[in-house]
Amino acid sequence: MTFKLIINGKTLKGETTTEAVDAATAEKVLKQYANDNGIDGEWTYDDATKTFTVTE
């Protein structure tokens, strides 16, 4: 399955996707991606669209 991350950061905005077997696995990968890029904020997840959003 494809999961999307929408980034609403102070210095970085955009989106990325990852392939994962489930939402929990995708969340780990996407949170690591955000952490690697210095993004720390509030996370939400929409199961209907398989989209995570992080807002700083």
Rank of each mutant, 00 (worst) to 15 (best):
residue 1 M to P: 09
residue 1 M to Q: 12
residue 1 M to G: 10
residue 1 M to K: 11
residue 1 M to S: 11
residue 1 M to V: 12
residue 2 T to V: 13
residue 2 T to E: 09
residue 2 T to Q: 10
residue 2 T to G: 05
residue 2 T to W: 13
residue 2 T to Y: 09
residue 2 T to K: 11
residue 2 T to A: 07
residue 2 T to N: 07
residue 3 F to P: 00
residue 3 F to Q: 00
residue 3 F to V: 02
residue 3 F to N: 00
residue 3 F to H: 03
residue 3 F to L: 01
residue 3 F to G: 01
residue 3 F to I: 02
residue 4 K to S: 06
residue 4 K to M: 08
residue 4 K to R: 14
residue 4 K to F: 13
residue 4 K to Y: 14
residue 4 K to T: 15
residue 4 K to Q: 05
residue 4 K to V: 11
residue 5 L to P: 01
residue 5 L to A: 02
residue 5 L to H: 00
residue 5 L to E: 01
residue 5 L to S: 01
residue 5 L to Q: 01
residue 5 L to V: 04
residue 5 L to C: 05
residue 6 I to L: 07
residue 6 I to P: 00
residue 7 I to G: 02
residue 7 I to Y: 12
residue 7 I to F: 14
residue 7 I to E: 01
residue 7 I to H: 04
residue 8 N to H: 10
residue 8 N to A: 09
residue 8 N to I: 14
residue 8 N to Q: 10
residue 8 N to L: 13
residue 8 N to E: 08
residue 8 N to M: 14
residue 9 G to N: 06
residue 9 G to I: 14
residue 9 G to T: 15
residue 9 G to S: 11
residue 9 G to A: 09
residue 9 G to V: 14
residue 10 K to F: 14
residue 10 K to E: 08
residue 10 K to Q: 12
residue 10 K to N: 11
residue 10 K to I: 15
residue 10 K to V: 13
residue 10 K to A: 12
residue 11 T to L: 11
residue 11 T to Q: 10
residue 11 T to A: 10
residue 11 T to I: 12
residue 12 L to I: 14
residue 12 L to P: 05
residue 12 L to Q: 10
residue 12 L to M: 14
residue 12 L to V: 12
residue 12 L to K: 11
residue 13 K to M: 11
residue 13 K to V: 10
residue 13 K to Q: 12
residue 13 K to E: 06
residue 13 K to W: 10
residue 13 K to G: 06
residue 13 K to I: 11
residue 14 G to N: 08
residue 14 G to F: 15
residue 14 G to V: 15
residue 14 G to I: 15
residue 14 G to D: 09
residue 14 G to Y: 15
residue 14 G to H: 14
residue 14 G to T: 14
residue 14 G to M: 15
residue 15 E to F: 14
residue 15 E to C: 13
residue 15 E to V: 11
residue 15 E to L: 08
residue 15 E to P: 04
residue 16 T to V: 15
residue 16 T to Y: 15
residue 16 T to E: 05
residue 16 T to I: 15
residue 16 T to W: 15
residue 16 T to F: 15
residue 16 T to M: 14
residue 17 T to V: 09
residue 17 T to W: 14
residue 17 T to M: 10
residue 17 T to R: 09
residue 17 T to Q: 11
residue 17 T to F: 14
residue 17 T to K: 09
residue 17 T to P: 02
residue 18 T to Q: 05
residue 18 T to G: 03
residue 18 T to M: 10
residue 18 T to W: 09
residue 18 T to P: 01
residue 19 E to I: 15
residue 19 E to D: 10
residue 19 E to Y: 15
residue 19 E to N: 13
residue 19 E to V: 15
residue 20 A to F: 04
residue 20 A to Y: 03
residue 20 A to S: 07
residue 20 A to N: 04
residue 20 A to V: 04
residue 20 A to K: 03
residue 21 V to R: 11
residue 21 V to W: 12
residue 21 V to N: 12
residue 21 V to L: 13
residue 21 V to C: 11
residue 22 D to Q: 03
residue 22 D to I: 03
residue 22 D to P: 01
residue 22 D to R: 03
residue 22 D to N: 09
residue 23 A to S: 10
residue 23 A to Q: 12
residue 24 A to Y: 11
residue 24 A to R: 10
residue 24 A to M: 10
residue 24 A to T: 10
residue 24 A to W: 13
residue 24 A to H: 10
residue 25 T to P: 02
residue 25 T to S: 12
residue 25 T to G: 07
residue 25 T to R: 08
residue 25 T to C: 07
residue 25 T to Q: 13
residue 25 T to A: 13
residue 25 T to F: 08
residue 26 A to S: 02
residue 26 A to L: 02
residue 26 A to Y: 01
residue 26 A to V: 02
residue 27 E to W: 15
residue 27 E to P: 00
residue 27 E to V: 07
residue 27 E to K: 09
residue 27 E to Y: 15
residue 27 E to S: 07
residue 28 K to P: 04
residue 28 K to Y: 11
residue 28 K to F: 10
residue 28 K to N: 07
residue 28 K to E: 08
residue 28 K to G: 07
residue 28 K to M: 13
residue 28 K to T: 10
residue 29 V to R: 11
residue 29 V to S: 08
residue 29 V to H: 08
residue 29 V to N: 10
residue 29 V to L: 13
residue 30 L to C: 03
residue 30 L to N: 01
residue 30 L to Y: 04
residue 30 L to H: 03
residue 30 L to G: 01
residue 30 L to Q: 00
residue 31 K to V: 06
residue 31 K to M: 09
residue 31 K to T: 05
residue 31 K to R: 15
residue 31 K to Y: 06
residue 31 K to C: 05
residue 32 Q to C: 06
residue 32 Q to V: 07
residue 32 Q to S: 08
residue 32 Q to P: 02
residue 32 Q to H: 06
residue 32 Q to Y: 05
residue 32 Q to G: 07
residue 32 Q to E: 09
residue 33 Y to W: 15
residue 33 Y to H: 05
residue 33 Y to Q: 03
residue 33 Y to I: 06
residue 33 Y to P: 00
residue 33 Y to R: 04
residue 33 Y to N: 02
residue 33 Y to G: 02
residue 34 A to E: 00
residue 34 A to C: 13
residue 34 A to W: 03
residue 34 A to L: 06
residue 34 A to R: 01
residue 35 N to V: 15
residue 35 N to I: 15
residue 35 N to G: 09
residue 35 N to E: 14
residue 35 N to R: 15
residue 35 N to C: 12
residue 36 D to C: 07
residue 36 D to S: 11
residue 36 D to L: 12
residue 36 D to R: 10
residue 36 D to K: 09
residue 36 D to M: 11
residue 36 D to Q: 12
residue 36 D to A: 12
residue 37 N to Y: 13
residue 37 N to G: 04
residue 37 N to M: 15
residue 38 G to R: 06
residue 38 G to I: 03
residue 38 G to C: 08
residue 38 G to M: 07
residue 38 G to D: 08
residue 39 I to A: 04
residue 39 I to T: 03
residue 39 I to R: 02
residue 39 I to F: 07
residue 39 I to P: 01
residue 39 I to S: 02
residue 40 D to W: 14
residue 40 D to F: 15
residue 40 D to A: 13
residue 40 D to L: 13
residue 40 D to Q: 15
residue 40 D to E: 13
residue 40 D to V: 15
residue 40 D to I: 14
residue 41 G to H: 01
residue 41 G to Q: 01
residue 41 G to Y: 02
residue 42 E to G: 05
residue 42 E to R: 08
residue 42 E to S: 11
residue 42 E to A: 12
residue 42 E to Y: 12
residue 42 E to W: 13
residue 42 E to I: 15
residue 43 W to A: 00
residue 43 W to L: 03
residue 43 W to H: 00
residue 43 W to D: 00
residue 43 W to G: 00
residue 43 W to F: 05
residue 44 T to C: 07
residue 44 T to Y: 09
residue 44 T to N: 09
residue 44 T to G: 06
residue 44 T to P: 00
residue 44 T to D: 08
residue 44 T to W: 08
residue 44 T to F: 10
residue 45 Y to W: 04
residue 45 Y to C: 01
residue 45 Y to A: 01
residue 45 Y to V: 01
residue 45 Y to K: 01
residue 45 Y to M: 02
residue 45 Y to F: 07
residue 46 D to Y: 04
residue 46 D to K: 03
residue 46 D to H: 06
residue 46 D to W: 04
residue 46 D to V: 05
residue 46 D to T: 05
residue 46 D to Q: 05
residue 46 D to N: 11
residue 46 D to R: 03
residue 46 D to C: 08
residue 46 D to P: 00
residue 47 D to Y: 09
residue 47 D to Q: 10
residue 47 D to C: 06
residue 47 D to M: 09
residue 47 D to E: 14
residue 47 D to W: 09
residue 47 D to P: 13
residue 47 D to K: 09
residue 47 D to V: 11
residue 48 A to P: 07
residue 48 A to S: 10
residue 48 A to G: 10
residue 48 A to L: 11
residue 48 A to I: 12
residue 48 A to M: 11
residue 48 A to E: 13
residue 48 A to Q: 11
residue 48 A to D: 12
residue 49 T to E: 06
residue 49 T to G: 05
residue 49 T to N: 08
residue 49 T to D: 04
residue 50 K to P: 00
residue 50 K to L: 12
residue 50 K to H: 13
residue 50 K to G: 05
residue 50 K to Q: 11
residue 50 K to M: 09
residue 50 K to W: 07
residue 50 K to E: 03
residue 50 K to F: 11
residue 51 T to L: 04
residue 51 T to C: 06
residue 51 T to A: 05
residue 51 T to Y: 03
residue 51 T to S: 05
residue 51 T to N: 03
residue 51 T to E: 04
residue 52 F to K: 00
residue 52 F to H: 01
residue 52 F to V: 00
residue 52 F to D: 00
residue 52 F to G: 00
residue 53 T to K: 05
residue 53 T to N: 04
residue 53 T to S: 06
residue 53 T to C: 06
residue 53 T to G: 03
residue 53 T to P: 00
residue 54 V to P: 00
residue 54 V to F: 04
residue 54 V to K: 01
residue 54 V to S: 02
residue 54 V to A: 03
residue 54 V to Q: 01
residue 54 V to N: 01
residue 54 V to D: 00
residue 55 T to S: 08
residue 55 T to I: 08
residue 55 T to A: 05
residue 55 T to N: 09
residue 56 E to N: 05
residue 56 E to C: 08
residue 56 E to M: 11
residue 56 E to S: 07
residue 56 E to H: 06
